[in-house]
């Protein structure tokens, strides 16, 4: 009995010491006075490890220390289409030491939610690092394999033409078709791969995919009909694909954005945006991004913030079409 009592005493002493230690450490002076960045930057990727956004985060973080003077600690916090990670990021102080990388997926999810936990504007955009273009593909011999042919066919047969793709893609296409005043049937898919498989199997007439996916099947199996964004495709063989701008529509590109807490001081945002620009000029980063089949489309903070505002407004309109 006696030994047991002693053990309990020792145990409580240890626990007490540990908690005490914790309090001491928690009370450590913050490093605010030092010039930003004075410590490691937590880089939240709102999607799971292994995905496209994650690969961007990891490739960029591999060169971060050379450009920022501090390393990035990449943390994946996926869930609820990226909203969980976004929200976790907002819980951290607005000191620029927590950065969020997202895409349009969480924005769409927030717009779909009746009572969203955060607003799509609860972010200060630092820059865009890239953007998807939703490219529509069709079988080479189909009457809708050119934009003019597609419009003529859809006018004659309203709603008959089927267009497959993921939610963002379908939204990008719907945005253009709505402006062109033609009616098509939108078929939603969970992944671009499933949509492309059904397109190749002839189950749907056309499919929407990113440029990197499209170039794997063009020109053997399909032709590109339209690029629904304003960003042109410069790759060989795609020069003649009309973009939204060429046709006089308001296009929609889907950015990979980097953002921070909305209360973050502007000088930190400017600094981060500049450093991101130099990071993306890094040859090693450029090389790996290219190998991923992706491209760098950098927009600094001022342009990106404007583009983001426009994008969210455009999406609010387009979402009603779904």
């Amino acid at each position: 009995m006696k030994t047991r009592f002693i053990k309990v005493i020792i145990l409580s002493a240890v626990i007490f010491l540990l908690i005490g230690n914790g309090l001491v450490f928690a009370g450590e002076a913050p490093v605010e006075d030092a010039e930003y960045p004075a410590k490691m930057i937590t880089y939240i990727c709102v999607f799971a490890a292994g995905g496209g956004t994650d690969r961007w985060s990891r490739i960029m973080s591999s060169a971060a220390v050379d450009h920022f003077g501090q390393a990035w600690h990449v943390v994946n916090i996926p869930g609820a289409d990226g909203i969980v990670g976004w929200r976790e990021g907002l819980k951290k102080p607005a000191d620029g030491y927590t950065v969020i990388q997202g895409s349009t997926t969480p924005v769409i999810a927030l717009l779909k939610e009746e009572k969203p936990p955060i607003s799509p504007f609860d972010i200060k955009i630092v820059c865009y690092v890239s953007a998807f273009r939703a490219v529509l593909v069709a079988k080479p011999d189909a009457p809708w394999s050119t934009w003019e042919g597609l419009v003529a066919y859809a006018r004659q047969n309203p709603g008959k033409l089927t267009v497959g793709g993921t939610t963002s893609h379908v939204m990008g296409q719907a945005n253009i078709f709505d402006q062109a005043g033609i009616e098509v049937t939108l078929v939603p898919y969970d992944s671009t791969a499933d949509g492309i498989a059904d397109f190749l199997g002839g189950h749907i007439d056309t499919a929407s995919a990113t440029f990197s996916t499209v170039q794997t099947i063009v020109p053997e199996e399909a032709v590109a009909v339209i690029n629904t964004s304003e960003i042109p495709i410069t790759a060989k063989g795609f020069e003649n694909v009309p973009s939204a701008k060429d046709l006089g529509f308001d296009g929609m590109a889907f950015p990979r954005w980097v953002g921070v807490h909305p209360d973050t001081p502007d000088e930190i945002v400017v600094f981060f945006s500049e450093k991101m620009d130099s990071l993306l000029q890094d040859d090693a980063v450029k090389k790996f991004i290219k190998k991923l089949g992706e491209e760098i489309i950098f927009l600094p903070y001022d342009e990106a913030q404007e583009a983001y505002r426009k994008l969210v407004e455009g999406m609010k309109r387009a979402i009603r079409l779904l």
């Binding site: 289409d81 909203i83 779909k112 939610e113 009746e114 009572k115 939610t167 779904l322």
Partner: peptide, 15 residues
């Protein structure tokens, strides 16, 4: 429609 359903208002169940 990609609209959340059956989540009892819990946002993290939307996925």
């Amino acid at each position: 429609s990609a609209v959340p359903r059956m989540t009892f208002g819990v946002y993290w169940l939307a996925g």
